[in-house]
């Protein structure tokens, strides 16, 4: 194995960091507020979008299905369906109307989530930047008052 003196390299790096004044001034991960763990289905933006796509393809219910069987069975099935078509189609129409309304509501929710997420991200970032600036100014004031 090639000889790599990690300790030497680290010493050189530490000296470089000190010389350039490079600091770890960013907040820690534990400072990021998040909801506590729970059971149930966690929100995932990509999966929400996937489910919306699937819902879109499934939301129209058809009142008619293909008929299978021998000619006599097919004839009887078709006759039965024609006799109750007026009843079934009305129910299916109502269901499709409801499905569309719910789907559109889900789409609006999705847009709203995305808007709110973007807005909150921007606010959180501004707040964090402001806090950093406050700390910087505090340090400067302390320096000047010495």
């Amino acid at each position: 194995m090639e000889d790599i003196n990690i300790e030497d390299i680290m010493q050189k790096i530490r000296a470089e960091i000190k010389e350039k004044g490079l600091t770890d001034s960013e907040l820690g991960f534990n400072s990021v507020v998040s909801a506590s763990a729970g059971t149930g289905i966690e929100y995932s933006q990509s999966r929400y979008a996937d489910v919306l796509d699937m819902a879109d393809s499934d939301r129209m219910v058809m009142s008619y299905r293909d008929v299978y069987g021998n000619p006599l069975a097919k004839f009887i099935k078709k006759l039965n369906r024609r006799l109750i078509a007026f009843y079934i189609e009305a129910i299916v129409d109502d269901q499709n109307k409801y499905n569309s309304e719910i789907y559109n509501t889900l789409l609006m929710n999705y847009s709203r989530f995305n808007e709110e997420d973007a807005r909150l991200s921007a606010i959180e970032k501004k707040l964090y930047e402001s806090e950093k600036e406050i700390e910087r100014l505090k340090s400067k004031i302390e320096e000047l008052s010495k």
């Binding site: 998040s34 966690e42 929100y43 995932s44 991200s121 959180e124 964090y128």
Partner: peptide, 20 residues
Amino acid sequence: SDLGYENYKRKLERYINLLG
């Protein structure tokens, strides 16, 4: 994959945003 840890991933995304 983030399967099962979607909230951890969301926290990572927020962290990325805060770090700029």
